[in-house]
Amino acid sequence: MIDGMATILDDAVRALRAWQHDDAPVQLHPGDVGWFWRSGADATAAAVRTWSRDGRIVAVGLLDEPGLLRLTVAPDARRDEELARRLADDLARPERGVLPAGEVFLETPPGALVQDLLRGDGWHDGDAWTPLVRDLAEPVPDPGLRIEVTGPEQAHVRAAVQRAAFNGSTFTAEHWRDMASAPPYADARCLVGHDQDTPVAAVTVWSAGRGRPGLLEPLGVHRDHRGRGHGRAITLAAAAALRELGSSCAFVCTPSTNTAAVATYRSAGFRQLPERLDLRRAA
């Protein structure tokens, strides 16, 4: 990866860290970029978009899938009309390379002005998402599983649980090493939960720094070991790890259609926040 791309990524992650606050925890997190880094530094650099003004980054986007852009804006610029119009214009023009032509989806922070502009330009509500948050001021109960922090020697175990938890996952130990070598992982941990000696669940947690919200991304239970409370257990372990890292709270966002996941997080002490909708532009 060339130096300029590395600098852009470093600056984007630094901005995302600074934008995380308890009063607005649901937005693009440095951990989202960190998890994408499993695809390698070059792919991550190609997926990140930044907008700057007067030498300061004011918006960051991550093309998480070919037709899905996860976009966030600096908290003090969410209602900035000049920035919102610039974003809307860039999103409408495939030749600018922000989004491809055809059907696309966009996630933005609730209340961002760019949402209003896009709805007035033919975008419609898309999929529903449910954010959940757990305060970490108090100690977290013991999860009831043996928890192991993944290091290079255990990367193959973490990868195997990931593949067994998510249909179609191609996550490998090499992907883990790429992710773990990235700057966002300096404040992250991968945890694997064991029922006796059997790995049954896994999660990666991402801190944005002491006193800021931390993220769970991803979390999954091995398909052969579901229905035994392991989802709640690994969620509690994730919250405890973030508390140890100094996070003020732990948050996660899951499709509203995944009612089982919502129930699992709530059982682990997470509070359900108002549902949010992404935006969809038809082909």
Rank of each mutant, 00 (worst) to 15 (best):
G122Q: 08
D125W: 13
G126Q: 10
G211R: 10
L118A: 05
C190S: 15
D135K: 05
G151W: 11
A137I: 08
D125F: 14
P184V: 11
H194Y: 15
A182L: 05
G122R: 06
A188S: 14
P143D: 07
P143E: 06
F171A: 00
Q196F: 12
W176Y: 15
E148F: 11
W176R: 01
V192G: 03
E174F: 06
G126K: 09
T150H: 04
G151V: 12
W206T: 07
D197M: 08
T170K: 05
V192S: 07
T150P: 00
T130Q: 15
T198L: 15
R146L: 08
D195N: 13
R210E: 14
V203C: 07
D195Y: 00
E138T: 13
A164F: 01
Y185V: 06
A160F: 00
C190F: 09
H124K: 13
D127W: 12
D127P: 01
V200Y: 03
L191G: 03
P152C: 10
G126W: 09
V140K: 00
E138N: 10
V161T: 01
F171E: 03
C190T: 15
P199L: 05
L191I: 09
S181E: 13
V161D: 00
V192A: 06
Q196R: 15
D178W: 13
A186C: 11
V157L: 10
F166E: 01
V205T: 14
P131S: 08
L117K: 07
H175W: 03
G151C: 12
H194K: 04
I147E: 03
V140S: 00
G211H: 09
A165S: 15
G151S: 14
G126L: 11
P183H: 11
H175Q: 14
W123M: 07
W206I: 09
S169E: 04
V161A: 02
S169R: 03
R210G: 09
V161H: 01
V149D: 12
P199A: 02
G168Y: 03
E153C: 10
T150L: 05
P141I: 07
Y185M: 13
D125M: 11
D195A: 15
V140A: 06
H175T: 04
R163A: 10
A180L: 11
F166G: 01
G168C: 06
T170N: 03
P131A: 09
V205K: 04
M179D: 04
V149Y: 13
T172M: 02
H175I: 02
V161E: 02
F166D: 00
A202L: 05
D187M: 13
D178Q: 15
E138G: 09
W129N: 06
W123Y: 07
L117H: 08
L118W: 04
W206C: 10
A164D: 10
A159G: 06
A201I: 03
H156N: 08
R146N: 11
W129A: 14
H124W: 08
A128N: 10
M179F: 05
R163I: 05
